[in-house]
Design a protein around this nucleic acid. Structure first.
Lengths: 152, 152
DNA sequence: TTGAATGCAAAGTTTTTGCAAAAGC
DNA sequence: GCTTTTGCAAAAACTTTGCATTCAA
C-alpha cells in the first residue's frame, strides 16, 4: 500500500494498484517515490530529468530503477512515451478519456498541448477508409511560438 | 557530376547538386551509390537497412558513410528523418510541395501514407489560434491494418 | 595541390540487462 | 520463505567522431 500524499492523482494510484495486483507485482518505496515525483513534475519528463530531480531530494534511486518504473507505468497504460525528435524520449501521464496533441516550439522547446475533436474525427475517417482499426495516434506540430517568433 | 541512372528523381539530384555547390562540398562515388540505392528502396529506410542493402551489391560503404550521407541529405532538406517509436529512425524523401502522414500497423509494421488537406488546414488553424508559426508537423496513426485485424 | 570524403575503430547517448543483495508480502 | 525489486556495472543499440588515408576538382 501507498502511504504518502497523492492528491489529485487518486485514479492514477488506484489503477496502478490494480495493475500491480493483477500482475502479481509489488509496491516498493523507490517505486512510490519515483512515481510521486513524476506526477508532480511538469508533463513530458525524460528518465534522466526525473532521475536528476530525485537526486536533489532525499531519494537516490538508480537510473535503471527510474527506467524500470517508467516502463512499468507504460505497461500499465498509465503513461505514454513520446519521441519529440530530440533523441531522448519523454513520458507523460495518460489521463483516461482525455487526449491531447502537441505544439512544440523549435526555438525555446516549450510544449503546448491542445485538443481538437474535428481533427480526431477526420483521423478516424481516414483510418476507416483505409481499413485500419486505430488504437492511438500522435500528432506533433513544430514551429515557433509567439514569444520566439519575434526574435527570428 | 553524376553519371548514373536517376530516372524519376531528376529534381532530387538537381537540388543536391545545388546544395553541394552552395556548400562547397563534393560529389563522390560512395555518396552517389548510397543515394541511388536510397532512392530506389522503399520509403522509410533506416541507415542500417540501407547499409545492408548496399552490402548485397558491389558497394561496401562504411556504415558511418551511410549515416553521413543521410545527414547530408537532411541538411539539404531533401530527406526527412522520423522516429517511429521503435528506436531506430527512418528516412524518407521529401518531395517538394507534397506532404503526407502515416498509418502504422502495430502488428505487421506496415506503413501506409495518406494525405488529408482538411486535417492540414485544421492544424494551421490550431497553430494560428495559439500564436505559433508552423514549420512542419508529424502525424502518425497507430492501429491494425485490414489484414492483421482478422488475426487478432 | 588543397580541402573534402572515406573507412575503421573508438567514443557517445540513451536504454536495457545480469546478478547478488535487499525488501515486500 | 519465496518472489520481486534494487543498485551497480556491464552490455546493447543506434549514431557520431577522430584520424590517417584516399579522392575530387
Amino acid at each position: 500500500m501507498v502511504d504518502t500524499v497523492k492528491v489529485g492523482h487518486e485514479w492514477f494510484w488506484e489503477r496502478l494498484d490494480q495493475y500491480l495486483a493483477k500482475s502479481q507485482l509489488k509496491h516498493s518505496k523507490q517505486r512510490n517515490f519515483i512515481i510521486e515525483e513524476f506526477l508532480q513534475m511538469k508533463t513530458h519528463v525524460s528518465a534522466e530529468e526525473l532521475y536528476s530531480q530525485l537526486k536533489t531530494m532525499d531519494h537516490n534511486p538508480g537510473l535503471a530503477t527510474v527506467y524500470r518504473t517508467l516502463n512499468l507505468l507504460k505497461d500499465a497504460a498509465l503513461v505514454d512515451q513520446k519521441q519529440f525528435s530530440d533523441g531522448k524520449s519523454v513520458f507523460e501521464v495518460m489521463e483516461p478519456g482525455s487526449h491531447h496533441d502537441h505544439l512544440i516550439c523549435l526555438t525555446c522547446h516549450k510544449v503546448i498541448e491542445f485538443e481538437n475533436e474535428e481533427i480526431e474525427r477526420l483521423q478516424e475517417q481516414v483510418a476507416k477508409k483505409l481499413g485500419f482499426k486505430l488504437t492511438k495516434h500522435s500528432l506533433e506540430l513544430f514551429g515557433h511560438c509567439s514569444d520566439c517568433v519575434k526574435t527570428l
